[in-house]
Simulated assay, not measured.
Amino acid sequence: MSIVLIGYMGSGKSTIGKKLSEIINFEFIDLDDYIQKKENLSIPQIFEAKGEIYFRKREHLYLKEVLQLNNIILSLGGGTPCYGNNMDTILNAENTHSIYLKSSIPILVRRLTPEKTQRPLIAHLKSDEELTEFIGKHLFERSYYYSQSNQTIVTDGKSISAIAEEIVASLF
């Protein structure tokens, strides 16, 4: 089985994925890290040197490649399910269970504010109000894709361990 974690940036995909990996002994793969290793460039470098269209094509190729593996936990970039037919690819992959880690806008703002400089998509936003509006607009656009996941787990008010245990209990 493969478990695919979907959600907005700051929703805990990588943190929860790593915790799940410890609990069920599946390999954890972050798709962005996988792409960077394969391309030998950082994501911003790929965008700058080759453009977003190139990146999205490679992202789809590597998503399909990783979904061929067994016993993995895959953390996607927040936008990955929304491009091309990536969500269909995930939903149609054999022995794959997708989970939308759903966090509220106030929680996402609180988590992302200290990390803004490390996240190019939001680095330009000056205030919490701008960040709140940006996240709200993005979640509205992306919720169509995220909500197609096999399962949704609301993460607000739960510890990393509690979320991981909830996932394990629902799958095994």
Rank of each mutant, 00 (worst) to 15 (best):
A162L: 09
I72N: 08
V4Q: 03
Y83D: 08
D88L: 03
L91K: 15
S127W: 10
L31F: 07
E22W: 00
R142N: 12
I105M: 02
I99A: 02
I107Q: 14
I107L: 15
E133M: 14
L131R: 10
F134P: 05
I24C: 07
T80I: 10
E166R: 07
I23Y: 01
E52L: 03
S159L: 00
G77S: 08
K64F: 06
S75G: 15
G10Y: 08
E48T: 04
S11E: 06
I99C: 06
G12E: 09
K116C: 07
M1C: 05
D128S: 15
L69F: 13
K116G: 02
Q148G: 07
G77H: 10
F47I: 08
D30L: 10
L125F: 08
F28T: 02
T113E: 15
Q151T: 13
I90E: 09
V109D: 04
S11W: 04
P120S: 15
T15L: 04
L108D: 02
R110V: 01
E129H: 13
K50T: 01
S98N: 06
I163E: 01
I90H: 07
I29F: 03
K64G: 09
D33Y: 10
C82Y: 04
I35Y: 07
F28H: 12
K57R: 13
S127M: 13
P114E: 12
K64N: 12
A49Q: 13
N92D: 13
Q151L: 13
R119W: 15
Y100H: 11
